[in-house]
């Protein structure tokens, strides 16, 4: 599954700012860290501001800061600001639903979408920050230990 650029940029910005809600960062700071277009990010930050998730201060020392509730705000909440989520975007063309195969395919695609929506709805920004701190991708390459002998001998 792929997210649109604006959505990804928004998630990067929210995660970066929510990591320390007292810190103010400029759009350029965030854009530089993630290697993304500062111009594009500025538009995204404006949308996040309109959604009440970030606040901006002008002038020296100004910048953006996170003003949402990281324990309540989910990936779904952020994504839906920028693009339709799953089922809405995958609404089949009317012509596809005129055939049995089209209906069957529609059911399977909806099943995938329902899982995607449940996943996005269940992961808060706070949980994402914990995931980032754990860095599971670093241990993913290490070989897994075998299951404990005590349990396997039951």
């Amino acid at each position: 599954m792929r997210l649109q650029k604006a959505t990804s940029f928004a998630l990067y910005a929210v995660l970066e700012l929510a990591a320390d809600p007292l810190r103010q960062l400029s759009g350029t700071d965030i854009a530089d860290k993630y290697g993304i277009s500062a111009h594009h990010l500025a538009k995204v930050l404006r949308d996040l501001g309109r959604a009440g998730l970030v606040d901006s201060a002008r002038g020296v020392g100004g910048g953006y800061r996170f003003i949402g509730n990281a324990k309540r705000l989910t990936l779904f909440d952020v994504i839906q600001i920028f693009e339709p989520v799953a089922s809405e975007s995958a609404a089949s063309h009317d012509s596809e639903l005129e055939t049995d195969a089209g209906h069957a395919l529609h059911i399977v695609l909806n099943e995938i979408d329902d899982h995607a929506i449940a996943t996005f709805r269940s992961i808060t920004i706070s949980t994402m920050l914990k995931l980032i701190a754990r860095r599971p991708w670093e241990s993913a390459a290490k070989p897994a230990k075998s299951a404990g002998k005590a349990a396997s001998d039951r």
Binding site: D114, A118, S122, L131, R134, A147, G148, S152
Partner: peptide, 25 residues
């Protein structure tokens, strides 16, 4: 008990509990 994985299963609409388990990693 000697195990290294923990699993669970719930309704995908049960966002309260789903979010809780997500928050536990």
């Amino acid at each position: 008990a000697g195990v290294q994985k923990v699993r669970t299963m719930m309704l995908r609409g049960n966002n309260l509990v789903l979010s809780f388990f997500r928050s536990q990693g």
